[in-house]
Design a protein around this nucleic acid. Structure first.
Lengths: 251, 251
DNA sequence: CGCTTAATTGACCATAATCAACCAGGGTGG
DNA sequence: CCACCCTGGTTGATTATGGTCAATTAAGCG
């Protein structure tokens, strides 16, 4: 296979990442190739499998290519708090490049396709590609920004407002990697998982879903969600997408 | 003044930062000088002043040299959630280098001495100093790790456990910049501010302090806190300092 | 079609919020 | 110098958001 064709194939593999980054900044063909070169051939993991566990010292970072994953912290009593939902295009543990051992675990919430990126290669990028390094850095900054919004939600919003906010966030993040459109999305997460996302009990998640339905905000059957009134959902969520950094703003 | 002496003076100015970084990794004299060069002569801000406000697009980042500051998100109803407490040596808005507008505000909780760092200079570091860049990146990664612990606290811990955890964290962070030792620290924060930290009402903060005292965990009079039983505090907090990345671990 | 997981509902309980006083200390103006 | 005031801390009574427990129904799935 000619070199260029092979390269196009590799770049296609990491398209959710490229797509996301390209919305923010201009990524040169060379940079795309450098990025694609870092990613090993994809692997499929089963729902429930851990991508990394707390206290691991991984020698690679993991790029999520398909499926849903989550970062989580578990307490001694077994309670789990999910601190971020990850969607295709997300580096789920990019920070392990500089920060090990892991301060939290990452689990596949559905079957996932992932591409491993050896730290060695990522470190080389950090030595030789300042612009790409800043883009990767920015990815981790957005994680932190998401954390902050969730903190505000857990600390100062009601369960209902927090839920609405979460739905707005997930929708935009999925839409930005072509996994959602027309205010419809597939979110194959059980209410028990949503409970760990929202810091609630499963029972209360169920009641909140009922409330969202009763208020005519969403249609929610199985794994498909349709947001019936986006503007109103945004209003009750007090949602402001600034923190997701979806717009163009070169670094 | 001879050049070397001037340089030593500049480096001394940012000693809390240098100290913190040096605990993790070897920082060369050249790197120290480069860092010190970035920081403008310090400025003193009054308690209550904002260092940056949400939606600002600062053209500089702020290094906290003395005092306490906090990042916060405010909701429409006026509720405020503090998402991180900042102590001397912290870059309170380093991420604004890559991520603007600001997704949150930063306020001085006490009078603060700060040193501004023009983005231009920080960007130059990111172009020319890969190791220093990784160290700065790591600073923002630790912010995210702190956020995650707080998320677990808000989502899954009781008010009491969360409070205990917070005290452990603050103590270690202060100790790591020589602002605390012997399990004693000065924490000049009102209970109303602590309420915004812990996602509680001021009244409940007061009750939690009473509980901490009653349990013989802390002695708390005015702004001085003495931790009477560190081991037990760590146990009730389920505190594990890994996420603070205080140990040696070169990047 | 049986089995297992997930969703749903109701009854009751607990943690923490809210509302409302009251108190202590420290700074200030008369 | 001292009364006053303002902020911050403390306490009690009541409410409410959301948790727990337990049972029932629905939905996938082999």
């Amino acid at each position: 296979m000619p070199l260029l064709a092979a390269r196009r194939l590799e770049v296609a593999l990491i398209s959710p990442l490229i797509e996301k980054l390209s919305r923010r900044d201009f990524i040169s063909e060379e940079e795309k190739a450098v990025l694609a070169d870092v990613v090993a051939p994809p692997v499929t993991l089963k729902a429930g499998q851990n991508i990394v566990e707390q206290y691991d010292r991984p020698s690679r970072s993991t790029l999520l290519l398909d499926g849903f994953a989550a970062r989580y912290v578990v307490l001694m009593n077994g309670a789990r708090q999910i601190t971020e939902l990850n969607v295709p295009g997300d580096f789920v543990d990019l920070h392990s490049l500089l920060m090990s051992p892991m301060d939290h675990g990452v689990v596949c919430l559905t079957d996932c396709k992932v591409g491993y990126c050896p730290h060695e290669a990522l470190r080389f990028i950090s030595q030789t590609q300042p612009h790409l390094t800043r883009l990767l850095w920015l990815e981790t900054l957005i994680d932190a920004a998401v954390h902050r919004q969730w903190l505000a939600g857990l600390g100062r919003r009601t369960a209902f407002g927090r839920f609405a906010h979460f739905l707005c966030e997930v929708y935009l993040r999925l839409a930005s990697v072509e996994r959602a459109e027309g205010h419809r999305m597939e979110l194959p997460l059980s209410q028990a998982i949503l409970a760990d996302v929202l810091g609630l009990s499963a029972v209360h998640v169920n009641r909140s879903v009922a409330q969202l339905r009763a208020d005519g905000l969403v249609e929610w059957s199985g794994r498909m969600i349709r947001i019936l009134d986006w503007d109103r959902l945004v209003r009750v969520a007090e949602f402001d997408p600034t923190y997701l950094r979806l717009g163009r703003d070169p670094v």
